[in-house]
């Protein structure tokens, strides 16, 4: 563990908690892409299958359990409890395409052709693009509530911090997993224009309204 990965995990945890608080307090999931949340749930499910077979640390296990529980809770809130507030007509990104491409890529490009490794690789590729339905929804509605932009900032920062973690691990431990690194760079890159808008607008108290 290093400070970059710890801050990254805390940023990821914060994002998930911010989203749950936003939906629970406002009793509404308006502006939230249910499709992105479904993809994140698939990412955690496929990546954390080794939860009970491969013990790494108490921290690792508790975080995995929390991420799994919170992502299922989030899709429950969106598609069941507050489904009347879900903007289905704005959440129209073809996310099936993201799943199919990730499956094909995972079958073609992986470290080892085994079930757990393919599922892990699939979760890495899927996570890189899982935010696209959410970003697409924001461009469609042209704006985002400030709490949603805080959620996105925390979520986008987490994988950016993981890139620093991978640089650290490369130089200190000589460890490099280029599948995770390249996917992490793509994932963080997708947030670039959002980060620009967040820093130039939201940080100054303005709302995140995309130029029409």
């Amino acid at each position: 563990m290093n400070v970059f990965r710890l801050i990254g995990d805390m940023s990821h945890l914060a994002a998930i908690i911010i989203l749950l608080i936003k939906i629970w307090r406002s009793r509404s999931c308006s502006g939230i892409s249910g499709k992105s949340q479904l993809l994140f749930t698939a990412v955690f499910t496929c990546r954390y299958l080794d939860l009970f077979t491969n013990f790494v640390s108490i921290y690792n296990t508790t975080m995995k359990i929390f991420f799994l529980a919170s992502s299922y809770a989030t899709i429950y809130l969106i598609f069941m409890k507050f489904k009347a507030t879900y903007n289905r007509n704005h959440d129209t990104f073809r996310f099936e395409l993201l799943i199919v491409v990730s499956v094909i890529l995972a079958l073609l490009i992986n470290h080892e052709f085994s079930a757990t490794e393919i599922l892990w690789t699939f979760s890495i590729y899927l996570e890189a693009v899982a935010i696209l339905p959410q970003l697409f929804m924001i461009t469609k509605t042209g704006e985002a509530e400030s709490i949603t932009s805080h959620y996105l900032f925390a979520l986008g920062s987490y994988r950016g911090l993981y890139i620093l973690n991978w640089i650290y691990r490369y130089y200190v431990e000589g460890h490099l997993d280029w599948i995770a690194v390249l996917s992490g760079i793509v994932q963080t890159g997708l947030y670039c224009d959002f980060f620009y808008l967040y820093i130039t607008r939201v940080m100054k108290g303005k709302n995140l309204t995309l130029p029409a």
């Binding site: 990965r5 995990d9 640390s57 690792n60 975080m63 470290h111 892990w120 993981y162 997993d177 995770a180």
Partner: peptide
């Protein structure tokens, strides 16, 4: 190989 090591990350 490289795939075991990365599995200590979330």
């Amino acid at each position: 190989s490289s795939n075991e090591v990365a599995k200590d990350e979330l």
